[in-house]
């Protein structure tokens, strides 16, 4: 064999006397991080009773969400019909206003200042005089 450099070690080659460059080690770590074994969570082991309980709760929550979505769709439909009736009326009343209201709003943007709301917006933005609470000493 030519062109292959073996580093001869005394005895059998095993994990203990194996040498790898840090670059190789880094790639191996990365490969471990993306392996599917890490992503597959442990299968839940539940008894029959718990399983039925879980199914009941899941179904109830699904129905609850369906109801919310149906209400939302109903509201949107109402809004759509209101817009339609208003435009029909406007068309009869004033053609100029109708034309102005019916122009394409291409290029319209929401304000950049509009933030996506958080559930608990902070009253105090930054705790400038934070001191950790004293922990009782263990005896």
């Amino acid at each position: 064999m030519t062109g292959v450099n073996f580093q001869f070690t005394r005895g059998k080659r095993n994990k203990a006397n194996r040498t790898r460059s840090p670059a190789t080690e880094r790639v191996l770590t990365q490969l471990k991080m993306i392996s599917q074994r890490r992503k597959q969570p442990k299968l839940l082991q539940v008894c029959q009773e718990d399983h039925i309980r879980h199914e009941t709760i899941t179904t109830a929550f699904k129905l609850y969400r369906q109801e919310i979505n149906a209400n939302r769709a109903k509201l949107l439909l109402k809004q759509y019909e209101s817009i339609k009736y208003a435009m029909e009326d406007l068309e009869q009343i004033n053609s100029y206003l109708f034309h102005e209201a019916n122009t394409n709003q291409k290029g319209k943007r929401f304000d950049l200042e509009m933030r996506i709301p958080t559930e608990y917006p902070p009253n105090q933005i930054w705790l400038h005089d934070y001191t950790p609470a004293e922990v009782a000493e263990k005896k």
Binding site: L76, I83, K84, F98, N102, N104, Q105, P117
Partner: peptide, 18 residues
């Protein structure tokens, strides 16, 4: 939540043409 509460109805109105 932001989309359903605020954006959806606004977008319906903005995109509407008679």
């Amino acid at each position: 939540d932001h989309y359903t509460a605020t954006l959806e109805s606004d977008l319906l109105l903005i995109n509407y043409t008679h």
